[in-house]
Amino acid sequence: VKVFRALYTFEPRTPDELYFEEGDIIYITDMSDTNWWKGTSKGRTGLIPSNYVAEQ
């Protein structure tokens, strides 16, 4: 598990995607895809765009 911080707010387009706000901490559990990672924030899990976060 790696810890990342959201650089921007992300509004999901599908139920599989995770909503998060700029500054949120996201725990990444799967980075197997280059563009979409699986992450958890505020008790919810979903896909996030990798270019919206920076490693802490």
Rank of each mutant, 00 (worst) to 15 (best):
I26G: 00
I28C: 02
L18R: 00
T40A: 09
F10D: 00
V53P: 02
D30A: 05
W37Y: 13
A54V: 15
T40D: 06
T9M: 06
I48L: 14
Y52L: 10
V3E: 09
Y27M: 10
S50F: 06
G43E: 05
K42M: 10
L47K: 09
I28V: 14
R5A: 07
I28L: 03
R44L: 09
I26K: 00
D30M: 05
Q56K: 09
D16G: 11
T14L: 10
S50V: 09
L7T: 05
T14I: 08
I26W: 02
Y27D: 06
M31K: 07
G46E: 01
S41Q: 05
E55H: 10
E55W: 10
D30R: 02
E21M: 09
T40P: 02
G39C: 01
I25N: 03
E11L: 15
Q56C: 15
R13A: 12
T29E: 10
S41I: 14
K38F: 15
S50Y: 06
A54E: 15
A6M: 02
P49W: 05
S32K: 08
Y19H: 09
N35W: 14
A6R: 01
A6N: 01
A54R: 12
I48Y: 01
T14S: 14
D33M: 07
E11Y: 15
E11P: 03
S32M: 08
E22W: 06
W37R: 01
L47E: 02
I28E: 00
D16S: 11
E17A: 07
F10V: 07
P12V: 05
F4T: 04
E55T: 09
D30P: 02
W37G: 00
W36N: 03
K42E: 09
E21P: 02
R5E: 07
R5K: 14
N51V: 09
D24K: 00
T9V: 04
F4I: 01
G23K: 02
G43Q: 04
D24A: 07
G23N: 08
I25H: 04
T9S: 12
M31F: 10
W36F: 08
T29H: 14
L7H: 03
N35S: 11
A54M: 13
E11V: 15
F10G: 01
W36M: 08
G39L: 02
G39Y: 02
K38L: 15
E22Q: 13
N35T: 13
I48Q: 00
R44P: 03
P15S: 12
D30F: 05
F10K: 05
T14Y: 12
I48F: 15
D16W: 13
Y8H: 11
T45D: 08
N51K: 11
M31V: 07
I48R: 02
L18G: 00
N35Y: 15
W37C: 03
G46V: 01
E17W: 06
D30W: 04
I25W: 09
Y52I: 06
T34M: 14
T40G: 06
V53D: 02
Q56R: 09
Y27E: 11
W37Q: 00
S50P: 11
P49Q: 05
P49D: 05
S50T: 07
D16P: 04
D33K: 06
K2V: 10
T34E: 14
E11W: 15
K2Y: 10
T9W: 04
L47A: 05
S32D: 08
M31R: 08
A6L: 03
A54P: 01
V1Y: 14
L47H: 05
E11M: 14
